[in-house]
């Protein structure tokens, strides 16, 4: 018997180490394996999210850590975005004598696209990497296994609370970031001209429509979901000890940011199809 298993093992090793006929076969196979595992992870999320017990207290704690603690970063980024966008757009509009269009142009650009995209990228950088690293270190130090042994459901406690928190907090951060961006844009307009606060916001709301605001906010729920899910997936499946922690954190940011762009592209197509 031991001889037989030895022979089988050698066969497997030979099979695996044999160079494949298709170039990058391992990469392609690895990609599809990853997609399958991520899909399974997503299904598990949806199958467990509605089942009790609900970790409400942990969810609120995560909302505080993910949402409230990210606000200063989002606020500073949003303010600079509005200010810079206005200052950079002014010369082009001035060529046409259309500087009065600055509030309308900047508000539509920020509310529709730049605000959600930039805030989500910042969020992916801060929160996605944080979740990836935290869960990966829990995995490699066997804390997740310990939770399972003690009868807790680590998936519910760790993954579901974090994914729900990212999905709900990102839209809130985007709205707050957009509001601060508009204030930054108002200061930007007044650096080289004079527009009253009332007139500026009148022009902003005059140019905006529900079709600008709602799709932009709704898509950020999906962005948040993707960032949280990818971060949790990468952390939850971390391997190779402490080295795996860095890899998981890095992969969470890269894949999270990529998923934002892919989802954004789909959202834009859907929005233009329906509106």
């Amino acid at each position: 018997m031991p001889n037989n298993s030895k022979i089988r093992n050698t066969e497997i090793i030979e099979k695996v180490s044999k160079p494949s006929a298709i170039p990058y076969a391992n990469v392609i196979r690895g990609f599809f394996e990853e997609v399958t595992q991520l899909t399974r992870f997503t299904f598990r999320f949806f199958s467990e999210v509605f089942k009790p017990p609900y970790e409400f207290s942990e969810f609120l704690r995560q909302c505080y850590l993910i949402g409230y603690k990210s606000f200063p970063l989002v606020a500073i980024t949003g303010f600079i975005l509005g200010l810079v966008m206005t200052i950079q757009s002014r010369p082009t509009l001035a060529e046409f004598g259309a500087t009065s269009w600055l509030p309308a142009m900047v508000s539509v650009s920020i509310i529709r696209e730049l605000g959600p995209a930039i805030t989500s990228l910042i969020f992916a950088g801060k929160v996605g990497s944080g979740i990836g690293a935290e869960l990966a270190s829990m995995k490699v130090t066997e804390q997740i296994d310990a939770m399972e042994v003690s009868g807790m459901n680590p998936f519910k406690y760790i993954v579901i609370t974090r994914v729900l928190a990212t999905s709900l907090m990102l839209p809130v951060l985007v709205i707050a970031g957009d509001a601060i961006s508009m204030y930054g844009a108002y200061i930007g307009v007044n650096l080289q001209g004079t527009v009253s606060f009332h007139l500026f916001f009148l022009k902003v709301f005059e140019s905006l429509d529900f079709s600008d605001v709602f799709p932009a906010v709704i898509k950020t729920i999906f962005f948040g979901f993707a960032i949280g899910l990818i971060g949790c997936y990468k952390g939850y499946n971390a391997k190779n000890g402490t080295e795996g922690v860095g890899v998981a954190a890095n992969a969470a940011v890269v894949l999270g940011s990529l998923s934002i762009f892919i989802l954004d592209m789909i959202a834009v197509q859907l929005t233009s199809f329906f509106i």
Binding site: G67, A176, V213
Partner: peptide
Amino acid sequence: NKIKLGLFVSITVLIFIVGIYFIGQKQ
């Protein structure tokens, strides 16, 4: 922390509602 979170979310939701009100008023 819960109070801070509640305040943050409430203020943001209020900003959103005010924005929606002004856009709706235009229409």
